[in-house]
Structures are given as C-alpha cells and as structure tokens.
C-alpha cells in the first residue's frame, strides 16, 4: 500500500550542517533537542549562534509558559482532571539572521486524572507527562526543521539596490542656475 521505510526520500535529514539551540544550557528541552540533532547524523550542534548555519530562536520557552488548568470537577466540587499544556513558539534563522522559518507555535496538551489522596504520586506523574510532551515536542520540531527550505547555505548578501537617491537629499529644489 505504498509505504516505504523513512529516510530514503530525505524527509528526515536536517538541511543544516551546524545548528545552534537558543535555550539555556541546563534546560532539559535543550539537552533532548541537541541529542536528537546529533543522533540525526549530518548535523553538529555549535555553542554560539555566530558560527551556526541555522539558529533555532526560541521566542517563548515552554518550561516557563507551561500551565496546569482544571479540566473536570466531580459533584463535590473536587478536581478530578487537570489539563497540562506545554507550548513553544520558535523560529529558524540562517547565518545572516534572515528568517527561514517564521514564528511557529506547537502546543501540546495532556489530561491528567487527579485525586487528592495521591497528591505526591500525582506530582510525579505530572513530571512524567511533561517529559513525554517534551519528547513529543522535540520530534515535531525536528520534522518542522527538516522541512525548512534553505536557499543554499551562506550565499553572499543580496546586492544593494542601484543608485538609490539618498533619502536626506531634498530633490524638490532645482540646482541654482549660475547667471553670467
């Protein structure tokens, strides 16, 4: 039925020889993303944006914006389900800083059943769910980055528009006509 193993048609490899991840060093998302980039083969992770062919610029860090909202109550007004949300807004820039992939939002949610009798256990389950969303998010980010169209890496900057009138010069005053 037309299925073939992935990787033959290049959907998989990242179009960047080197990538920089714009997230704090110790953030678990950064560690997981870097690990997947390395495991992808063909792309190295560099530590500074300047010498990276592609820069993953994180506009809103999911670890700071994750939320936990009430999803369902039971008839005694007790919470029986929370909704965990984990969302990122990122974009991909090239070496010159031009945007290859515009601001992209990926939002993941997981419901978690809750019971106050197991508060400590539910706390750990929450951490497990966030970890699972993080792994899922990394996969989705990898696919988005793999689909980025790069116009050939590090082209010389586009030529300046020719003889543009410098804006400061008022072009209304005709040049003074010298009288003999």
């Amino acid at each position: 039925c037309g299925f073939h193993l992935r990787g033959d048609s290049g959907h998989y490899t990242l179009p960047f020889p080197s990538l920089y991840v714009g997230l704090p060093e110790s953030s678990p998302l950064a560690i997981d993303l870097k690990r997947n980039i390395r495991a992808n083969g063909g792309t190295t992770v560099v530590n500074s944006a300047k010498d990276a062919d592609g820069v993953i610029d994180v506009l809103s860090n999911p670890e700071k914006t994750k939320t936990k909202t009430i999803l369902s109550l039971n008839s005694n007004g007790r919470v029986r389900q929370y909704l965990l949300t984990y969302n990122i807004v990122f974009r991909v820039l090239d070496k010159q800083g031009t945007e290859l992939l515009g601001p992209t939002t990926i939002t993941l949610t997981r419901p978690i059943d809750f019971n106050e009798t197991q508060l400590l256990a539910k706390e750990q389950e929450e951490a497990l769910l966030y970890k699972d969303m993080q792994t899922d998010l990394v996969q989705q980010m990898m696919r988005r980055i793999a689909a980025v169209k790069t116009p050939g890496v590090s082209l010389p900057p586009a030529p300046l528009p020719t003889d543009k009138q410098p804006s400061g010069q008022p072009s209304t005053i005709p040049p003074a006509v010298p009288i003999q």
Binding site: R110, Q118, L120, A121, E123, E125, L128, D132
Partner: peptide, 16 residues
C-alpha cells in the same frame, strides 16, 4: 506507600 500509586494507563505511561 509514602509517595506511590498505580499510574494511569495512557500513551505516556505504557512505554515506562
């Protein structure tokens, strides 16, 4: 059981 409970059976848990 200080901090332990059965995990809810869902796609995040079946692979632990």
């Amino acid at each position: 059981t200080f901090d332990t409970d059965a995990a809810t059976f869902n796609f995040s848990q079946i692979f632990s």
